[in-house]
């Protein structure tokens, strides 16, 4: 055996030599490793945004200033766009009166992010075509629309029916519960807040007062307890003679009502906070739509190679000071 070979043999036993050899092998692996085919779960969702008057209520606080529910909803949606796994598809519709109005069918949000984000920014309460909001009918219509588009549903609303539901109850869901998955997102605070009022040209002119709105819906049959109401008369005053009073001019998120609607239709319910919460709730409720993709895994051997080189330079000391070991042991005993 020549002295050179003996030298190399002896040096090869050094752990730092092994670390460098490992680094070299890992780097070669990083060069040749192919992209791995993976399936990613995207979502395909139709987002319906309630743009009726009560969505202008400013009962969210952002940076110390009150902001409207619609502003928060738009901000959360924009944030959601960037959080959705690629490839995900999102369509947008507006809700006012009793039907959702489809702006565009679901498009790929990663590729067309700018266009979709621009459309979300452009959502405005002034686009509302009528002042009423028959929310239950809107949700049922939206479910049908989402089914037609083969997508899940996110319906953002505060749940305030205008006019109030008839005393005989609201409409019932005719479809199959759970056929469309998704979320009803309740927008608004839990305390009552005044609803801004606007003139014909869209300028704000104060708030809705108690006498401006209908507090009770006298459509349909009177409630069973109508006879006990003051001034009741079967023919002339079947709902009683008193002018109904209430808090319909104020608004809060009608969570129990929205939860009931969600239960009836097989959707999940979430409160509107921000994009992160919305994304989490949506991924939990949505149908996973696996799509084929390619994953670049070269960073794994690359990172290991870096660690090996650093180890060769002794960045991770082989012997730790005694105090450190005592600390680790103590930390291990920690309950």
């Amino acid at each position: 055996m020549t002295p050179v070979i003996r030298l190399v043999r002896r040096n090869a036993r050094d752990p730092r030599t092994l670390a460098l050899a490992a680094a070299l092998l890992l780097l070669l692996a990083a060069v040749v490793v192919p992209r791995l085919p993976v399936t990613r779960d995207g979502v395909r969702v139709l987002v319906v945004v309630d743009i009726t008057g009560s969505m202008n209520t400013r009962d969210y606080i952002h940076d110390g200033a009150p902001v409207s529910r619609l502003t928060v909803a738009k901000g959360a949606l924009r944030d959601l766009l960037s959080r959705l796994p690629c490839p995900s598809h999102l369509g947008l519709a507006l809700f006012s009166e009793r039907v959702p109005f489809l702006l565009f069918e679901p498009v790929e949000v990663c590729r067309d992010y700018g266009a979709v984000a621009g459309a979300v920014d452009a959502v405005d309460w002034r686009e509302g075509w009528e002042g009423d909001s028959h929310i239950a009918e809107g949700i049922f219509g939206a479910i049908e629309m989402a089914q037609g588009l083969d997508s899940d549903l996110v319906f953002i609303t505060d749940g305030q029916e205008t006019p109030p539901l008839p005393l005989s109850g609201g409409p019932t869901f005719g479809g199959k519960a759970g056929a469309v998955r998704g979320l009803i997102v309740g927008a608004g605070g839990y305390g009552l807040a005044p609803i801004p009022k606007f003139d014909d040209r869209g300028n704000e002119i104060g708030f809705w007062g108690a006498n401006d709105v209908q507090h009770e819906n006298h459509f349909g049959p009177p409630p069973p307890d109508a006879e006990s109401r003051p001034g009741y008369q079967a023919r002339n005053a079947p709902f009683g003679a008193e002018i109904p009073t209430g808090t319909e001019h104020l608004s809060s998120v009608r969570e129990p009502y929205l939860r009931a609607l969600a239960g009836q239709t097989g959707l999940a319910y979430a409160h509107l906070d921000d994009g992160r919460h919305l994304a989490r709730a949506l991924t939990a409720a949505a149908t996973p739509r696996p799509a084929k993709g390619m994953a670049d895994v070269r960073w794994v051997p690359g990172a290991l190679a870096l660690a090996a080189v650093l180890a060769a330079y002794g960045l991770f000391p082989a012997r730790y000071p005694r105090g450190f070991l005592r600390f680790v042991k103590a930390a291990g005993r920690w309950p």
């Binding site: 507006l94 565009f104 498009v107 266009a115 621009g118 686009e127």
Partner: peptide, 24 residues
């Protein structure tokens, strides 16, 4: 537009998004 005007999609060069809006 119908009763109120609605901004469906701002000016964009993403043809897919435009087609999706026209589809609707």
């Amino acid at each position: 537009f119908s009763t109120a005007p609605m901004l469906v999609l701002p000016l964009t060069d993403h043809q897919d998004a435009v087609l999706a809006a026209v589809n609707a």
